[in-house]
Amino acid sequence: MAAHIDLTFDCANARLLADFWKTALGYIDEPPPAPFRTREEWFASFGLPEDDSVDDAAWLCDPDGVGPRLSILKVPEPKTAKNRLHIDVRVPGHGSADERWARIEAEVERLVRAGGSVLGTFDRHHVMMADPEGNEFCVAAASG
Rank of each mutant, 00 (worst) to 15 (best):
M1G: 15
A3M: 15
A3Q: 14
A3C: 12
D6S: 14
T8N: 12
A12Y: 01
A12L: 12
L16K: 14
L16W: 00
A18D: 08
F20H: 05
G26M: 01
Y27T: 07
I28E: 14
P32A: 13
P32D: 08
A34V: 11
F36C: 10
F36Y: 14
R37A: 14
E41G: 09
E41K: 04
F43T: 07
F43E: 06
S45A: 13
F46Y: 15
G47V: 02
E50M: 06
S53N: 04
V54H: 02
D56R: 09
A57Y: 12
A58Q: 07
A58H: 02
L60M: 10
L60I: 10
C61S: 13
D62Y: 02
D64Q: 15
G65I: 15
G65P: 12
G65F: 11
G67C: 09
P68L: 09
L73D: 14
P78N: 00
P78C: 04
P78T: 04
K79V: 02
T80K: 08
A81D: 12
N83H: 06
R84S: 14
R84E: 12
I87G: 01
V89E: 00
G93A: 04
H94M: 08
G95R: 03
A97S: 10
D98L: 02
D98T: 06
R100Y: 05
W101S: 08
E105R: 13
A106T: 13
E109N: 09
R110W: 00
L111F: 00
L111N: 01
G115P: 12
G116F: 05
L119S: 09
T121V: 14
F122L: 10
R124W: 06
R124N: 11
H126Q: 09
A130D: 00
A130Q: 07
D131Q: 00
P132L: 02
E133M: 08
G134M: 01
A140K: 07
A140L: 11
A140C: 05
A141T: 03
A142H: 08
A142F: 07
